[in-house]
Design a protein around this nucleic acid. Sequence first.
DNA 1: CATCAGAATGTAATATTATAACCTAAACTG
DNA 2: CAGTTTAGGTTATAATATTACATTCTGATG
Lengths: 158, 158
Amino acid sequence: MTQNVYKSHDHHACIDSAVAEARRLCDEKGVRLTPVRQRVLELVWDNHKPVGAYDLLPKLAEEGFNSAPPTVYRALDFLLDLGLVHRINSLNAFIGCNHPGHSHPTCFFVCRECGMAQELDATPLNEIARQAEQQLGVRVEQQMTELMGLCPRCQKAS
Amino acid sequence: MTQNVYKSHDHHACIDSAVAEARRLCDEKGVRLTPVRQRVLELVWDNHKPVGAYDLLPKLAEEGFNSAPPTVYRALDFLLDLGLVHRINSLNAFIGCNHPGHSHPTCFFVCRECGMAQELDATPLNEIARQAEQQLGVRVEQQMTELMGLCPRCQKAS
DNA sequence: CATCAGAATGTAATATTATAACCTAAACTG
DNA sequence: CAGTTTAGGTTATAATATTACATTCTGATG
């Protein structure tokens, strides 16, 4: 399943593989991973904390990219559509997805102290969707779960 | 479990029981259900669609209440703390809770066409939280699931 | 009852997040 | 290479939320 962000790991490898995966996916779908889209993806992957759209703007500006809100929102929308990033609604922030390409129910744990996010296996959510469909007759198209609390590190620190 | 909002029902009774429940809870906790707080609660319950903070402002103004953003956000924060309303993060909107008073994992289905929200039994979420706690060592304090799709009515309409 | 403390509200300003609208440039397509 | 689609540039503004500080109300206590 998803990696454990609380274990130390070679984060450059995380970023590289995210970009490689993105490139593969874009080729497959015949869409373009333009420089600004790729750079936004890399910046989102910069660490395991969800990042706000407006945090990206100055970074893009530094590097000579255009940097008005529509630029970054367009790039993020593109990446969201492909499942390369997810939006954490409770934070108005974005985080890389480590198994993009197939739409899937989404589930994150976010630490209220350090802000790091850990993607979780969302399989049990399918049960909720299935029940809702059977009992209420709704049709579920998307789902997102957000857990909040303290990560192992921040528990120790307090 | 939770009521089915797609079945016709006496909605005045929904509102009345929400207010009665709020009053009981406030008495129990020794906090005050002031006029503006009660009115905000009623307005949130006005129908089964999540309502934005800024939608409430003109309604409060009409009725002679003060109506600046802090007024409505304070009232909503108060109601959120007591579990009388929930916030639907994907919509930046608020909806009444029909079993307030004990903190619980929250789960809503929201129709992308009509916007109505249906609270669901979130018990299966506990499984996700339990697994995250065991496998990752995190401590889960809050959780929220949002499902999106088409409600029975809007499926027929299309 | 007078006074005091804490809770609640009033008010103005501003911060943060996101989108609209319209134009220009680049890249595929036949 | 002409036409079309896709992407990006630019300006302005909409929508959501908070800060900071002044004022008023409420309930407790002497």
